[in-house]
Amino acid sequence: MPIGDWFKKEQKDDAQSAEKRAVPDGVWEKCPGCNEALFIKELERNHMVCSKCDYHFPISAQQRIDNLTDHGSFEELWAEMHSEDPLHFIGVKAYTMSLDKAKKTTGLQDAAVCGRALIDGRRVVLGVIDFKFIGGSMGAVVGEKITRTIELATAEEIPVITVSSSGGARMQEGMISLMQMAKTSAAVARHSAAGLPYISVMANPTTGGVTASFATLADIIIAEPRALIGFAGPRVIEQTIKQKLPKDFQTAEFNLQHGQIDMIVDRANMKRTISRIIDYMGS
């Protein structure tokens, strides 16, 4: 989902939330991929992936961490860092209101959750972006935390892993957000120059300033099935070229076919795959 759609959805969610609360906690969840009603317990056991059609439900940063790291090994860093609203930005609503709402819904201070972890007993530093926090957009906090994540891995000479789902740079922090692309990319350059591994996982969706910086600068790029990955949003492209886009345009499969990523890996196999790759990369 490009960031524009995220904003639309958020507004719709506001309207629908009252209605939603009236329905008791569901046992079933309808799959957006195949419309099948799925038993939630089973869906959770299956890493939030539809067993019928392989649709990957969006998951939180915490769920991703649980999915990728050894049980109980994650030690979060810089959790209290938060935005200062440097531009005093007011859109349809004040940026501070969007921040407050995102903090409430996610329990996070900003979109990135970073820290040390073990993967099959191997030490790594992990940075995960949660799409639920203002479309996973990168402002000063996400940029700083991802940079520190990379720097820590460089200093400790261990692999760094990022998991992205982001609409790109955060508009509400203007040029400060754009400059985070340069900051994170420069940190990747230093990590790489030190001969250390970097693996980037891209989930649905990863676009804009995040694909045009650290997320595509990894040694190995892995995508989740069907994830939307690209630079420009599909609607912007459609409006510019004034023609229909190919059916699978900007999907993970499209990106694999065009040589933009190394592989597409199911959520269930993600940890094992990363572990096997790191094993080839020394230390």
Binding site: T211, A215, T216, L217, F231, T240, I241, L245, F254, H258
Partner: peptide
Amino acid sequence: AHPGIGAEERGQAVAIA
């Protein structure tokens, strides 16, 4: 940067990065 089909196919994001 130019938004287009070919640009995405040839890796607009990674070229900028």
